[in-house]
Design a protein around this nucleic acid. Sequence first.
DNA 1: AGGGTTCTGCACCGACCGGTACTTAATTGA
DNA 2: TCAATTAAGTACCGGTCGGTGCAGAACCCT
Lengths: 193, 193
Amino acid sequence: MGRPRGFDVDQALERAMRVFWARGYEGASLAELTGAMGITKTSMYAAFGNKEQLFRKALQRYGDGPAAYATRALEEPTARAVALAFLRGAVRTTTPPGGPSGCLAVQGALASSDESRAVHDLLADWRNDAGVRLEERFRRAVNEGDLPRDADPRRLARFIMTMGFGIAVQAANGLAPAELDEIVDTALLGWPA
Amino acid sequence: MGRPRGFDVDQALERAMRVFWARGYEGASLAELTGAMGITKTSMYAAFGNKEQLFRKALQRYGDGPAAYATRALEEPTARAVALAFLRGAVRTTTPPGGPSGCLAVQGALASSDESRAVHDLLADWRNDAGVRLEERFRRAVNEGDLPRDADPRRLARFIMTMGFGIAVQAANGLAPAELDEIVDTALLGWPA
DNA sequence: AGGGTTCTGCACCGACCGGTACTTAATTGA
DNA sequence: TCAATTAAGTACCGGTCGGTGCAGAACCCT
C-alpha cells in the first residue's frame, strides 16, 4: 500500500550500471546517475539506500547480465573450451556496440580515494571470486583427465584471468573486437594439450 | 633572482606521482597531493600550473622512472628476451615493496567523468605508444630472422601489452611478485620459436 | 470520504572540490 | 640600503559533492 513507484527499478538500475561502467564509482556523480536513471535523488535514496549500495546492486546486475559469460563459460565441456569461451565472452562484453568500453569490475575503482576503499575492495573480491571459480573448473578438468596431470589449475586460471583483465584495458583503449579476438588466439597458443 | 624555492621540485613531483598512482587522477585531491608534496596549493600552482599539468609531469616521471623497464626491455637481443624482460619489469614495477600497487598508466584514469577526458586520453595514448614501440621491436626481430617469417609483430606486441595490463590489475588485486612471475611463464609457453 | 502509508519534487545542508587574490618573506642587483 | 622580483602562507572564491527535511501527491483499506 501507499503511493506506487513511478519508475521501473530494473530499468533504473540498468542505467545506473552503465553510468558506473563508463565513469567508474567515484567518477559517477549522483547528478549524472539520477539523470540517467530518470529519477530524483530522493527517489534513488528511497529505493536503493545510498550511492555505495546502488553500486553494489549495479555490480550484481552486471554479474548476472553482461558478465554472465564468465559463469556460462564454466559449462563448456573441455578446459580449452572454457578458456576460449571465457575470453571470447570478455571480448564481446568489453566492446558493446552501443555501450561503455571495458569492464565495470576492472575500471569501476582500480584506484580510489580512501572513502571508496569499500568499493575498491568489493571489486577486488569480485574479480578474485571469478578467478577462483575458473580455478575450480580447471582442477576438475585435471581430475577428469581433460588437462594433463601436471597442469597447475591455479596458474592456468590466473593466466586466463590476467588475459581477461588485459582485454578489458585494451577495450578501453579502443581496440576492436576482431583485434581482441586475435589476441585471444595468440594467448591460447601455449595452452596445454 | 627573487626568493628561492623552498622545496625540491623533483622530490615533490615524485611524491605527487605516488599519490596519483595510488588514488588515480580524480581520486587524488589537491589537499592530499600538496600534503604529500609538503607544500601549499599556492606553491604547487606556481611550480606546476594546475592539477592536470602536475599529472602530466608525474606521468612523464613515471615513464622515466618506474616504467623505464618498458624501454630498457627493447634492448634485449631476442624477441623472446624482450617479451620476458618487459613482463618481468611489469611485475616488479606493479608490486613495489613500499609503494602503491598496480600501474599508474592503467589505474590513473581508466574510467572517468567528462572533465577528466583529457587525462583519460593522455593515458590511452601513453599505453598505445608503449605497444607501438614493442611492435616495432618485434618487426625488427622478424626482419632479423629472430622471429619466424610468418609471425605477426603487431599481434605479438598486443598480446604482450595485454599481459602487462592484466598483470597491473592482478597486482592491484594483491597478488605477490612470485605469483605474477608464474603467470608470465605461463603466458610465454606459446611464444613462437 | 477519510486516515494511513509510501513515493516524489523542491529546496537546502555542511563539506570539499580545484583554483586564486593578497599579503608577507626572502633573495639579487644597484 | 633599498627597489625589484619571486616564493610562501592565509584566507577566500563559486561550484559541486553526497545526502536530507519537508510538504504535497497518489495509492490501499476501512
